[in-house]
Design a binder for these strands. Structure first.
Length: 863
RNA sequence: GCCGAUGUGGCGGAAUGGCAGACGCAACGGACUUAAAAUCCGUUUCUGGGAAACCGGAGUGCGGGUUCGAGUCCCGCCAUCGGCACCA
């Protein structure tokens, strides 16, 4: 670091104020019912996405969102709100576990160290968190409640009639009433099929290198999101969460949220709801039928063949003897392909005829059944009816294999090849002449009447694969007895993972917890569930724990939850800021859990986050994404050493709009540093000995009208810009303010006082320090700056007696005149027509029209 | 291919349908200084005319449109970024 002389003594006062805030618990906030808490004040819950405390520490991207929320928090406090602004640690996860494997050190040790480092770095930025509410997802007092919430899911089912989760006991009662002679195991089976947390043997994404399964959301291009290792599909018995039951609500209940439209559409897209119909095709010569899902049932008359996914259970039965060898070879070949190869769009379609036929229920035609890997086992029913005339993929396949193409939709205009849009039904018997929309409806009714199918809705969203073969995660509160799972009771929580010397993957599908033999087997012979929860579990509800982090009785205190999560919309947290990378993972999972907790009556809102803002990415100075390999990563500590925390905060906010992606610039950092130094010198001057003292230019004097205009314009702009998170323009206005007062001989203390308060949320250390120093001479600086009420602007200062009017001729700027404010239209137009420019320009021409906007513009239209 | 976002000086960016380029950076010129740094002041979209004050023209990715007036609204393209992707 350079030893260059600092422009103002931030290295002295920044740590000083951080200490003061910590000692005085300046930013601590209580809960309703606590001594000194005023529940009549409005509340503001402003939340950052809590970080995973990695070994690398913070980079300059972290403080961007954190500073934005901090400005809001400080501002709202000055506006008289009770502000909940907490921070914590999402500390379970793979990196700590892999570090443990490498070093032999328990993951908790590295976690504690990493958290200490992160916290120290955050505190150096001067963020006004209430650290008495700090939480850590790896703390047994925290994850006991994560496990407790899992039990709520386990002990609930989704009632499709009410579209709500209900206790499983109610379902048990229903079943017993309708099955008076039902067996105990019959009941168990029934309940286990309906729990929101259930066990299923399902094809999963298995990553051999990581030794664990992954959720669909964690697999990118056939590789693990973490590490980029190959992922293969294999069937395994796993815990699943029934998120698909909530698919419609997860779409519909987005409507009331103040989220970016792009994130809402990302979620809708991910859930992928599509409406259509299921159609049953009887298999020729067999008792079976093939069910397909289609969004275009109106094209049923155009179905000329069928395709089954290679994994479809009926493939074996349908295949004829002479086709068996070819089909078996094809299936074996497909099974060897990775997901990446299978979904490669560029490749040619492949497939094999099974030898079997099905009957089209609407016209009783016999159509061939094929097997092809362009049909996915995991979507719909794993089988399709192929309509090559009106589906691109079927068209391509039919062309390659010489299958019949039949057109059943008349396009609005001439089109060649395949037509996938809406039109009018043709060659379709009773559908002929109907528009696509009407035809869809008519055929759906027909299918239902003839028992050949029904209306149906399909989703891309799959149930959430919730178990991982890892050590460093929440153990399940589940034991197994006689091949059946059982929930532990709430009193048995938390289930703490056993100490292990060896965290390595077992090399098989067995989780590392299997190595803790003593822990695994209970006294009565029952064995523990060996999987752990995925990293997303802890972050699904942490915003609730912040409300009452030390509550021993409940995961969140009821009264406090109602106070902090209340609001005008369906969501509780007033402002949630974080990166877009969590658009479909964390944000979808957290909404899902929250809805269950809401259905069961544990929380008072149906959505967790009312307003969501995504901060943009900060690029390196080379305009590239910051990464170790590019060597363009910047550490906030270095910026703070050189320029101070206030400069870091201010620069991050001045770079541009919060939501934009933008490159870092050291020259830009210098710019805001200079600005802060100018603020400092507005109040302070350096004497002969190099000691800073209050500037003699700061005096008790009333600001003149021009100065008052700047003061009030700044109050207005900064206030409005903070509310709309437009921090860059708020800072610009404060720069204009400072430029105005830099060169005046006499600096009114009132002006300086206002500036310091406005600047306080942005640069809290500098404003605190100046406030304190000035208080030694001037009584209007008494008290703590953070306790001052936010200034109010007076419009009357912003209005001047004279206004400048823009003169246009045919919409082009020609001149400007200054006139009395609120001059009436006629007089103004008269004045305009008399100006030399307009006189010359209109000479010999006809004035067609004069457009006048009072106090702003006059546009003369001539011909 | 589909969905979403974004295109404005040398750079980051600013503009309720009404003066395009606020504010900052960089660059250039000046003041202060023995000198430099720091600081302060000024100039800076492109372009034509003029010694100059000044007078004009063009200009917000491209092409149309609406309007007295468009960076802003509408239609059609192009480019970049992000997400999804054989989802029937």
């Amino acid at each position: 670091m350079s030893e260059r002389r600092k422009q103002y003594p931030f290295p002295d006062f920044e740590p000083k104020w951080q200490r003061v805030w910590a000692e005085r618990l300046t930013f601590r906030v209580g809960n309703p019912g606590e001594h000194g808490f005023d529940p009549t004040r409005p509340k503001f819950y402003v939340l950052d996405m809590f970080p995973y405390p990695s070994g690398e520490g913070l980079h300059v991207g972290h403080p961007e969102g954190y500073t934005a929320t901090d400005i809001l928090a400080r501002y709202k406090r000055m506006r008289g709100f009770n502000v909940l602004h907490p921070m914590g640690w999402d500390a379970f996860g793979l990196p700590a576990e892999q570090f443990a494997i490498k070093t032999g050190q328990h993951p908790s040790v590295a976690t504690v160290q990493n958290i200490a480092r992160f916290k120290k770095q955050l505190q150096r930025i001067g963020l006004s968190y209430d650290w008495t509410r700090e939480i850590n997802t790896t703390d047994p007092d925290y994850y006991r409640w994560t496990q407790w919430i899992f039990l709520q899911l386990y002990n609930s089912w989704f009632d499709p009639a009410k579209k709500k989760a209900r206790p499983i006991s109610e379902l048990a009662a229903q079943w017993k009433a309708s099955h008076p002679d039902g067996s105990e195991s019959g009941l168990r089976d029934y309940l286990d099929q309906h729990r929101l947390a259930y066990v299923a043997e399902a094809p999963v994404n298995w990553c051999p290198q990581l030794g664990t399964v992954l959720a669909n959301e964690e697999v990118v291009d056939g590789k693990s999101e973490i590490g980029g290792f190959p992922v293969i599909r294999r069937p395994m018995r796993q815990w699943m969460l029934r998120i698909t039951a909530y698919a419609d609500r997860l779409i519909d209940e987005l409507d009331g949220l103040d989220w970016p439209e792009s994130i809402k559409s990302l979620q809708r897209n991910w859930i992928g709801r599509s409406e259509g119909a299921e159609v049953h095709f009887p298999v020729v010569g067999q008792d079976d039928h093939i069910t397909v899902f289609t969004t275009r049932p109106d094209t049923l008359f155009g179905a000329t063949y069928m395709v089954l996914a290679p994994e479809h259970p009926l493939v074996g039965k349908i295949t004829t003897a002479d086709q068996r060898a070819a089909i078996d070879a094809y299936r074996a070949q497909v099974a060897q392909k990775s997901d990446l190869e299978r979904t490669d769009l560029a490749k040619e379609k492949t497939g094999v005829f099974t030898g079997g036929f099905a009957v089209n229920p609407v016209n009783h035609q016999k159509i061939p059944i094929w097997v092809a890997d362009y049909v996915l086992a995991s979507y719909g029913t794993g089988a399709i009816m192929a309509v090559p005339g009106h589906d691109d993929r079927d068209f391509e396949f039919a062309q390659k294999f010489g299958l019949e193409i039949r057109y059943v939709v008349q396009p609005p205009g001439p089109i060649e090849g395949c037509f996938t849009g809406p039109g009018t039904a043709i060659n379709s018997d009773f559908l002929n002449g109907l528009s696509t929309t009407v035809a869809k409806n008519r055929i759906a009714s027909w299918l239902e009447e003839h028992d050949s199918g029904k209306r149906a809705i399909n989703y891309k969203l799959r149930d959430w694969l919730f178990s991982r073969q890892r050590y460093w995660g929440e153990p399940f509160p589940i034991i197994w007895r006689n091949g059946r799972h059982e929930a532990l009771s709430a009193e048995d929580l938390p289930v703490v993972p056993p100490p292990l010397d060896d965290y390595r993957p077992t090399g098989t599908i067995e989780p590392p917890l299997a190595k803790a033999k003593d822990w695994v087997t209970l006294a009565d012979g029952a064995i523990r569930e060996l999987n752990t929860m995925p990293q997303w579990a802890g972050s699904c509800w942490y915003f609730l724990r912040f409300i009452s982090p030390h509550d021993r009785q409940r995961f969140v205190g009821a009264q406090a939850e109602q106070y902090w999560m209340s609001g005008r919309g369906p969501g509780g947290v007033d402002l949630y800021v974080g990166g877009t990378e969590h658009a479909v993972l964390h944000l979808l999972y957290a909404r899902f859990w929250h809805k269950i907790l809401s259905d069961l009556g544990y929380v008072s809102t149906i959505e967790p986050f009312q307003r969501l803002v995504n901060q943009g990415m900060i690029l390196g100075e080379d305009n590239q994404k910051m990464s170790k390999s590019r060597g363009n990563v910047l550490n906030p500590d270095d910026i703070i050493d050189e320029y101070g925390a206030d400069t870091l905060r201010l620069y991050e906010m001045f770079m541009g709009p919060l939501e934009a992606t933008k490159p870092w610039s050291m020259a830009g950092v210098e710019g805001v540093y200079r600005f802060l130094a100018r603020v400092w010198r507005l109040g302070m001057t350096e004497n002969q000995e190099g000691v800073w003292e209050i500037s003699p230019q700061v005096i008790k004097v009333e600001p003149d009208p021009q100065q008052n205009k700047v003061i009030h314009a700044t109050i207005k702009k900064v206030t409005q810009d903070i509310e709309s998170l437009a921090f860059n323009t708020a800072i610009s206005q404060m720069m204009i303010f400072v430029n105005t007062f830099t060169n005046v001989e006499r600096r009114p203390i009132q002006a300086l006082r206002t500036l310091l308060i406005l600047l306080n949320p942005f640069a809290p250390h500098l404003s605190e320090e100046l406030w304190e120093r000035l208080s030694q001479r001037f009584s209007i600086f008494s008290g703590q700056i953070s306790e001052q009420p936010w200034p109010v602007w007076d419009e009357s200062y912003l209005e001047e007696d004279e206004v400048e009017i823009i003169l246009q001729l045919n919409g082009k700027l020609r001149d400007k005149i200054t006139v009395r404010r609120d001059l009436d239209r006629e007089s103004l137009e008269q004045l305009v027509l008399e100006t030399p420019k307009i006189r010359t320009a209109t000479r010999g021409k006809t004035i067609q029209k004069i457009v006048t906007v009072p106090n702003r513009i006059v546009n003369v239209v001539v011909r």
